[in-house]
């Protein structure tokens, strides 16, 4: 296990000196993550995600509970832990603002005492995969957000960490930049030597990178399971869209179908069905018995819907 926590809890005092109150940001988080996994850590704002991450990286002392990361006590062995994990905060920077990007990398390599040969190899690889050749000599303060985030992720990986913690890494990025970062991370994780723990509000990040999802709310773990299982358990309806050769009346009364929407004067119909009650194949066959099909497509319930259902529960 690379991460293991038991009843992790953290309280904060908020307010002014005269009116203090105790707020529990993380109430009870028990969590284990195995090596090589990619876990999406989800929850609404204020759920306790970042607080948990800060306790896992040793910069925040838990009020109570236990945590072990890479076999170390994060608070007591913070420096040793820092050698073995990489952290990217989407809203903060670990690069040196006034220096060219590559000098931040050099500093990072030096601080982590990465051997020169391995450093070069790792850097060249990241530069190529993330297409950073064009702005390596540009001072960090002049980089675009997308360029800077590529730099942040590279810096976090230069010392070959066992665990990469990403706290909202795609926040503020455009679609292309997000996609580039996701495909890079998924490749890094697929090689199997880096465990990913990712918090995000951008659910396609999770869809693309994580098999397992942990949802927390109000400082407690609500759900912890494989994304596919959650899909089945919580998912709303799937939708089969059929395009017909001839206009037809609404295709009512098919097994498992809960709703039918007719578009394009009956040439296109959307059939919503419950995943447990029938399969897409059965439904297509059933439709084909009634009308002549030109085209079909199936839409999965979005992960947004899924998460909304979980939060509401």
């Amino acid at each position: 296990m690379i991460i293991q926590t038991e009843a992790l809890r953290r309280e904060f005092l908020v307010g002014t000196r005269l009116r203090r109150r105790r707020v529990t940001a993380v109430e009870d988080v028990t969590l284990t993550v195995a090596r090589g996994e990619a876990v999406g850590f989800l929850g609404p704002n204020g759920a306790g995600k970042s607080t948990t991450i800060k306790m896992l990286t040793g910069v925040l002392v838990p009020t109570s509970g236990r945590a072990r990361v890479c076999g170390l006590d994060p608070v007591r062995e913070r420096r040793e832990l820092a050698r073995r994990i990489g952290v990217v905060f989407g809203q903060r920077s670990q690069l040196w603002w006034d220096l060219p990007l590559v000098e931040s990398f050099d500093l990072h390599g030096a601080i982590h005492r990465v051997p020169a040969a391995r450093y070069r190899e790792r850097l060249d690889e990241c530069v190529e995969l993330l297409d950073m050749g064009g702005f390596l000599r540009t001072p960090v303060r002049q980089l675009s957000l997308g360029q800077r985030m590529r730099g942040e992720v590279t810096a976090a990986l230069l010392h070959s960490p066992e665990l990469l913690v990403l706290d909202e890494p795609t926040i503020g990025l455009d679609l292309t930049s997000k996609e580039r970062l996701r495909s890079f991370l998924s490749e890094v994780n697929a090689r199997g030597d880096v465990t990913l723990l990712l918090t995000t509000h951008d659910l396609p990040d999770v869809e693309r990178l994580c098999r397992r999802v942990v949802v927390i709310d109000q400082g407690r773990v609500l759900v912890d399971d494989e994304l596919a299982v959650l899909r089945q358990q919580f998912a709303g309806h799937r939708t089969l869209v059929v395009e017909l050769m001839e206009p037809a009346p609404p295709l009512l009364g098919l097994t498992g179908v809960v709703d039918v929407t007719v578009e394009a004067q009956g040439l296109r119909q959307r059939l919503e069905f419950a995943p447990g009650a029938t399969t897409a194949a059965e439904l297509i066959a059933a439709v084909a018995r009634h009308v002549e099909l030109r085209d079909v497509s199936v839409f999965e319930p979005s992960i947004e819907d899924l998460v909304r259902t979980i939060y509401l529960r």
């Binding site: 800060k54 990286t57 040793g58 910069v59 913070r78 420096r79 040793e80 820092a82 050698r83 952290v87 905060f89 903060r92 920077s93 670990q94 601080i111 982590h112």
Partner: peptide, 17 residues
Amino acid sequence: TGDVVIDLGRPWDLQAA
């Protein structure tokens, strides 16, 4: 600003650095 989490999360002696 909280950016000190980055400084504390590095494997160095912050004061010496």
